[in-house]
């Protein structure tokens, strides 16, 4: 703060004195800045602190509790017989074919839905981005409607639409080869997964397109104009200018959706309940903890699911170099 020149400075050359003065001033500024930074940091804690504490209480605590519970043989209806078995639950789960087939189905659903959603979402984002101003609001609302519907409700809607006794899909689409009034969509793996994934895609494509729209808005329009002036075709501009400039947004969208899709539960629970090899990991955890009341086993599957989600995050951030700050326009 102090910019006073010390009396000793009087005996020095004017230049040295000036330099010293400058240094003092700089130091003063530094002190001032670090004071301000500190105050900002404190304010940051005041603002984010409660949320952070709540996060710890509702996220970190259950995760730790589940990890602890997963080391026990523990059934809710026989609480006195709780027994420490170390990693026994994990070794049982990891050697069980049901776990691996659920894992396979989960990965399959994740990969297919995220890919399809990415393509569709990008197309929708382009439409929203380029739409005439008058139509923009209406268009965005229309595209976002599915995302606003509760997943359980949309799952029931899709289920009843395809259901053999109450559905209309079989009679509307009986001109499509393979579809007739006797097709039971939920009797075999392929058709069941098709409806589950179609419902998932319908429901969450708006989310991905919203993230991509934000990415599109970040692409500098002068770059595109320059490319246009240079004679680049629409496709070339998209491939060489737009997509490279929104890579961060795309990767964030893919990461968020992949994490979400990996935890798919509602659609499968409502439509098939895991029948016909449509069992997914979340449902498997539900079956053990909620239906069987085997808290230890269920917790172990939940922990494994959590590890998978962390692994996806890690892979995306490290291998594909997703820059989360970049998507916010900070880099």
């Amino acid at each position: 703060m102090s910019t006073q020149i010390t009396p000793a400075a009087g005996g020095r050359t004017p230049r040295a004195a000036a330099e010293q003065e400058e240094a003092e001033v700089r130091r003063g500024h530094e002190a001032e800045r670090s004071d301000r930074t500190r105050a900002e940091a404190r304010l940051g804690w005041y603002l984010a602190g409660p949320a952070f504490v709540v996060m710890l209480a509702v996220t970190a605590y259950p995760i730790l509790q589940a990890t602890y519970d997963s080391l026990f043989r523990f059934k809710l209806t026989a609480q006195d017989e709780r027994e420490f078995i170390g990693l026994g639950n994990y070794s049982m789960i990891l050697t069980d074919p049901v776990f691996w087939s659920s894992m396979l189905v989960t990965v399959f659903i994740t990969v297919v839905t995220v890919l399809v959603e990415l393509v569709l979402g990008f197309a929708l984002a382009l439409v929203m981005h380029r739409a005439v101003r008058q139509l923009r609001g209406l268009l965005r609302t229309a595209i976002l409607v599915p995302y606003g519907i509760i997943t359980v409700v949309s799952a029931f809607a899709w289920f009843y639409a395809f259901d053999i006794s109450s559905g209309f899909v079989n009679s509307w689409f009986d001109w499509v080869p393979g579809i007739d009034e006797n097709l039971n969509w939920f009797a075999e793996t392929g058709p069941s997964l098709f409806v589950i994934m179609a419902s998932e895609i319908w429901k969450t494509t708006p989310f991905i397109s919203l993230l991509l729209l934000a990415g599109l808005a970040q692409v500098p329009s002068d770059l595109e104009e320059a490319a246009e002036v240079d004679g680049a075709t629409w496709w070339q501009r998209l491939k060489r200018v737009v997509i490279p400039n929104m890579k961060a947004a795309i990767m964030v969208a893919v990461l968020f959706r992949a994490l979400d899709a990996f935890r798919i539960f509602d659609n499968v629970f409502i439509m098939t309940g895991g029948a016909n090899n449509t069992q997914v990991l979340s449902l498997l955890a539900y079956d053990q903890s909620i239906s069987r009341l085997e808290i230890g086993l269920g917790s172990a599957i939940s922990v494994l699911l959590f590890v998978c989600v962390i692994a996806i995050c890690f892979a995306a951030i490290k291998l594909f170099k997703v820059d989360l700050a970049g998507a916010r326009g900070e880099s």
Partner: peptide, 15 residues
Amino acid sequence: GPGLPTADENANLSV
């Protein structure tokens, strides 16, 4: 019938 794999009591009744 084709509805057997998803037939519960209510589905039976409608058939």
